[in-house]
Simulated assay, not measured.
Amino acid sequence: MAKSKGAKKALDSYTVKGTQKVVKVGDCVLMRGQDPDKPPYVAKIEKIEADNRNNTKVRVRWYYRPEESMGGRRQFHGSKELFLSDHYDIQSADTIEGKCIVHTFKNYTKLDSVGTEDYFCRFEYKASTGGFTPDRVAVYCKCEMPYNPDDLMVQCETCKDWFHPSCMSFTPDQVKRMEKFVCPDCSLPDGDRKLRQSSPGSSPTPEHVHKPEAKRRKR
């Protein structure tokens, strides 16, 4: 006759092994992987359970780093960017290293300083297909790239759009010394400017896109 498995007990919290750090359901945590040379995995705790031998398991929802996704890391992905995936798993609580904070994109760009425990997420990721939600985001500058909060951008005083200094042939130091910046389109005579703005493929104007708050923007 097979022995029945011991009943599992749901826990509200767990003290990280060897520390005084307490994690709870809903917290985001760093989890140790098999390769010590790689950064820890990031996950959100969905459930904490202990068996009758006090072995504690956690059900987690994984965050993926851009390089772990099908499309890989792209130029506009921030160094602390994560994707909330639909990949769930059961792991030993012993692999938890500590807590971290996964901010919304908007809140992350408002931080005065970014700590080692700070990350941000603006996309959900479907691991089986490589699809993202949302599948479109606003683009900026003449390079028409989504916003990367790691990059310095400068705002045009006229059209209020944002630009990378390098795309405007400026260095960051030159931009920081500017009292104001006017983009090349807005520097054109009025007639040429209207023609340029109405041409196919032009960058979206401020009326058509939401401008996120940026930490490194230079006015």
Rank of each mutant, 00 (worst) to 15 (best):
C143F: 05
E67M: 15
P184R: 10
T109F: 09
H210Y: 08
T171N: 03
N148L: 08
T95N: 05
C186D: 06
D151Q: 06
T15D: 11
C183Q: 14
D151S: 07
S113K: 09
T56A: 01
C100G: 09
K21C: 12
P40V: 01
C141G: 11
A214D: 00
I90W: 14
E46Q: 15
G131P: 00
R74V: 13
S85I: 10
R177K: 14
K44Y: 07
V102W: 01
S85P: 02
M31A: 15
Q75C: 15
Q20L: 14
H77P: 10
D37R: 11
D27F: 13
F105Q: 03
A50M: 10
P204H: 02
P40R: 12
H103R: 11
D37L: 15
M178Y: 13
D190L: 09
V114C: 02
T19H: 13
S92G: 07
D89P: 06
I96N: 10
P39D: 13
K126Y: 15
E117R: 11
W62G: 01
V60S: 04
P66A: 06
E157M: 09
C186H: 02
L195M: 13
C100I: 07
G71A: 11
S187R: 15
C167L: 00
R65L: 12
D190C: 07
V16Y: 12
E49T: 14
F83T: 07
N54I: 05
D118M: 04
K215R: 05
G71K: 05
C100F: 06
M145T: 12
M168G: 00
H103M: 13
Y64C: 03
W62H: 02
S4A: 15
T171E: 06
K126N: 04
K44P: 09
Y125L: 08
R217C: 08
V29T: 07
V16L: 09
